[in-house]
Simulated assay, not measured.
Amino acid sequence: MDADGAEVRAYIVALVRMGAPEVPGPPALAVPGGTAAEVTSVARRLALRALPERQRRPELTPEPTPGLLAVSRSLVVDVHPSAPGWTTAERERLAGWVAVLIEHRGEDGVQELVRELDEG
């Protein structure tokens, strides 16, 4: 399997779709609470920075890969400690930016997001 390729993404999406049960305990990544607007602002900034220069258009939201959108929702957005208080629209907006970040930076992008939120 190519670690950066479509096979890995397809595998992760398949795992998400299987609906693995949540395990009680602390989350794998400790993330501070925050408003959807705060978290989305950081994710958006990091995602835009991760895009190749020719694709950077801050006035437009890049179209996330559908499979990565599911990964973004399941593994990042839905496990954020403040997510239960966000609207569906807020969660979807954040999921889109996180999916773009994952597409261009992979797990490093998620780690960077967590660091930025922790420092902010």
Rank of each mutant, 00 (worst) to 15 (best):
P32M: 08
L94W: 03
D108L: 04
A20K: 10
V77D: 01
R17T: 15
R56I: 06
E116A: 13
E90P: 01
G33H: 13
Q55V: 07
T40K: 01
G25L: 03
G67R: 03
V23F: 08
E38S: 09
L51K: 03
E116S: 08
T87R: 08
A95K: 02
A89F: 13
A30I: 15
R57W: 10
L101P: 04
T88Q: 12
G109Y: 07
G109M: 06
P84D: 15
G109A: 09
A6G: 06
A99E: 00
E112I: 02
L60N: 12
G96S: 15
W97G: 03
D4P: 14
A10N: 12
R54P: 10
V16P: 06
E107L: 13
M18L: 14
S74L: 12
T88H: 09
G96F: 03
L117D: 04
A3R: 07
P32I: 11
S41M: 04
T61W: 00
R73C: 04
V13R: 10
V79N: 07
R17G: 07
W86Q: 03
V114W: 00
A3F: 11
V31S: 00
D4Q: 15
A95R: 00
R93W: 05
G120M: 14
T87G: 14
L60I: 05
G19H: 10
A30P: 09
L113M: 10
A30E: 15
A30F: 11
P32A: 07
P58Y: 00
E112P: 01
R91G: 09
P26Q: 09
E112R: 08
T65Q: 09
R54L: 11
E112W: 05
V13I: 10
R105W: 06
P84W: 15
V76W: 02
M1A: 15
R91M: 07
A14E: 15
E119M: 03
D118C: 05
H104Y: 13
G109S: 11
L94V: 02
H80W: 11
V114Q: 02
P58G: 03
V79L: 14
R9Y: 14
G85V: 08
G109L: 09
V16A: 04
E7S: 11
L69G: 04
V16C: 05
L15I: 14
G25Q: 12
L68S: 02
L101K: 00
T65K: 06
E59C: 06
E38W: 05
W97L: 01
P66M: 06
G96L: 07
V114D: 01
V79R: 10
T61E: 06
M18S: 14
G67F: 03
A95V: 14
L75Q: 12
G34W: 08
L69R: 05
W97H: 02
R93Y: 04
V8A: 12
T40I: 03
E59I: 05
A36Y: 08
A37N: 03
L51H: 05
R115E: 14
A6R: 12
A37G: 04
A70Y: 01
S72D: 06
G25K: 07
R93E: 11
V13T: 12
R115S: 13
A28W: 01
R115K: 10
W97M: 00
R115H: 15
L69C: 08
R115Q: 15
A50N: 02
G33C: 12
V39R: 00
R44H: 08
P26H: 03
